[in-house]
Design a protein around this nucleic acid. Structure first.
Length: 595
RNA sequence: GGAGUCGUAGUUCAGUUGGUUAGAACGCCAGCCUGUCACGUUGGAGGUCGCGGGUUCGAGUCCCGUCGGCUCCGCCA
């Protein structure tokens, strides 16, 4: 027997047809002499009616059904009678009158209800993760997984239409100590040696450019052994792209076009050209290199206004080249002490020492009123462009701290006050990322993007000077790279760069990063060799598939767009991984567990 | 590595100042029910209060430790 239709497709036009449906019992409503069954499959739900009067045998079977039994229903499509249509179901204008019911399989009572009636409360996430196969029966989650498949298909079409070639690169690579921690895989044949799983196929795609393959892309699984976040898992998928003879503009067009075609899946039309902002501007205006542009509330710099005031902590901040910045929260002069206390706790997580505030209510109020006086507070409020009824939230600290704290506070307040338009999609290209980040622990400069990123032509001179002249080393912090991110709604959805294709610049860069020629050769020798055989200028990007899908699905959690995600402590609760291995396996690999 | 938060019936939660037999809703089981779609209705079963220790005449409640989920900081070239 074969099913004739899915549970989501029957309509008024099918009335009178004999059909066979197969699916799960989502719900049974028993009325004694007849019984309603909501039959669910991947496509939807169809109401089955079984009557004792007309179909005695089927009705007896229907009585036996329990939740999540798997059944086949043979019956006829009927139009629902007046007043019994269900507008909540796509199939709500019809119902199937069953003449025969086959129980294909029974099911234990589920450990949790798939969707709770009367409340939005889903079962706790650890329980749902343990029984992921049941959670995936939820239409919402199933929809997300299918949306992801459509997005990947759309991406493949798009890349293919642009003439890109999908190339698979190895999963078993070699460990390179830069960047994230590697997941390593022991080699049985070469005892005491290890493969590493790719953090990204970065070097391999660049080698494809040296090969002359050009226009490479891959839907690449990447692995990073770092702690998780709501938008980060230890394994994730990137659209990885590289192209030769390209400059930033070429790549921006590819990124823009890619996100445009993907967002069309949810009927959103992104602008042909994304707005652009330099890294420096993003940090100055939004305190973040991935600003959410769905709402305003930009940072205001009050450092100038605080000069020559005698509030010691703020004076010290300015003395040490710090900043005093603020956001204005519209109409929130009525923020209570508790709210500002909560927000103060919030900014402290980002290293801020406190949160000062001004409330422009009926009376002027401020945490700084006593120290600065009413006139100065008014002046500050005016400088911040705050109006009557507004609250001004002020953070003073190191530039990086003030930016991080206020950048995060801006998002936090927007969430609290519901300032974010859930139907808005605001893309942005952030450009001119710094080439290096100062590492406060080692005192060295690390690659901000990766060690193959090209400096901006304008900063090449500074780059050379900083490396060749020991006394000018800190200039490295000012060198900008041909590196960029694509940001949508505050999520870093893609990032990339133009790469270095000349070996002497690459050598300079290794020197800047404190890698001796010997060490660089040991780690990247094969790549440095390759660079010497006619490397075309090239560049590319990688886009996070999960983050893109989070935007498509309107979720803030990466687990909602992965079929089998791991918990925050990097475990799979369904298969209980990671797990022990047999001693014999370890022996074969020459591995001994210590402790 | 650190911080916050949660953990009570199968599930989601409530549980007063530490005090009798730990409750509700949903789910589950059994019965009744001719138009439901959150069906209704009658009855029933169901508890290691995450785990361990402590304080106390007495602990779901207080203290210490520990485990787990989530979120954040660090980390994520």
């Amino acid at each position: 027997m074969e099913k004739t239709h899915s549970c989501g497709e029957l309509r008024e036009t099918n009335v009178g047809e004999k059909v066979v449906l197969m699916g799960w019992v989502a719900k049974k409503r028993d009325f004694g002499v007849f019984t309603f069954i909501d039959l669910r499959d991947r496509d939807g739900i169809t109401q089955i009616v079984v009557s004792e009067e007309t179909d005695r045998e089927a009705h007896t079977k229907a009585k036996l059904l329990r939740g999540e039994f798997v059944v086949a229903v043979i019956g006829e499509v009927f139009s629902r009678s007046e007043g019994t249509h269900n507008s909540k179901l796509a199939t709500g204008d019809i119902e199937v009158h069953a003449s025969e019911i086959l129980i294909l399989n029974d099911a234990k009572t589920l450990p949790f209800e798939l969707e709770k009636a009367g409340s939005q409360n889903l079962a706790s996430e650890d329980l749902r993760l343990k029984y992921r196969y049941l959670d995936l029966r939820r239409p919402q989650l199933a929809h997300n997984i299918r949306m992801r498949a459509r997005a990947v298909k759309e991406i493949r079409n798009y890349m293919d239409n642009l003439g890109f070639t999908e190339i698979e690169t190895p999963i078993l690579l070699k460990s390179t100590p830069e960047g994230a921690r590697d997941f390593i895989v022991p080699s049985r044949i070469h005892t005491s040696k290890f493969f590493a799983l790719p953090q990204s196929p970065q070097i391999l795609k660049q080698i494809c450019m040296i090969s002359g393959l050009d226009k490479y892309y891959q839907i690449a699984r990447c692995f990073r052994d770092e702690d998780l976040r709501a938008d980060r898992q230890p394994e994730f998928t990137q659209l990885d792209v590289e192209i030769s003879f390209a400059n930033q503009e070429t790549i921006y067009r590819i990124i823009e076009g890619m996100f445009q075609s993907v967002l069309r899946l949810i009927d959103v039309e992104l602008p042909a050209q994304f707005p652009r902002m330099t890294y420096a501007e993003a940090l100055r205006r939004f305190g973040s290199d991935k600003p959410d542009l769905r709402f305003e509330m930009e940072l205001v710099d009050l450092s100038e206004s605080f000069k020559n005031t005698d509030f010691a902590p703020f004076a010290a901040v300015l003395e040490n080249k710090g900043e005093i910045k603020a956001i204005v929260v519209k109409g929130k002069a009525d923020y209570s002490r508790k709210v500002t206390d909560d927000l103060q706790e919030f900014v402290k997580r980002y290293g801020a020492s406190g949160l000062a505030w001004i409330k422009l209510g009926d009376e002027l109020n401020s945490s700084l009123l006593k120290v600065l006086g009413e006139a100065k507070i008014s002046e500050l409020a005016t400088t911040a462009k705050a109006e009557k009824g507004d609250a001004v939230l002020i953070v003073a600290g190191k530039k990086s701290v003030a930016a991080a704290a206020l950048g995060a506070l801006r998002i936090e307040v927007a969430k609290r006050e519901n300032l974010i338009d859930r139907n808005a999609y605001k893309p942005l290209l952030v450009t001119e990322f710094p080439m290096f980040e100062h590492n406060d622990e080692t005192g060295n400069y690390d690659a901000a993007h990766h060690p193959f990123t090209s400096p901006m032509d304008e900063d090449l001179e500074m780059f050379r000077t900083a490396i060749e002249d020991e006394t000018q080393h800190e200039l490295l912090g000012k060198v900008r790279a041909k590196a960029y991110d694509a940001v949508i709604n505050g999520y870093e959805c893609a990032g990339g760069s133009i790469r270095i294709h000349q070996k002497e610049i690459q050598a300079l860069n290794f020197k800047a990063l404190g890698l001796s020629p010997e060490v660089a050769r040991a780690r990247f020798g094969f790549f440095l060799d390759a660079l010497e055989y006619g490397t075309p200028p090239h560049g590319g990007f990688a886009a996070g598939i999960e983050r893109t899908c989070m935007i498509l699905c309107g979720t803030e959690n990466i687990r909602d767009v992965m079929a089998f995600p791991k918990t925050a402590s990097a475990q799979d609760l369904m298969m209980d991984s990671p797990g022990d291995v047999d001693v014999s396996q370890l022996k074969e690999l020459g591995i001994k567990i210590v402790e």
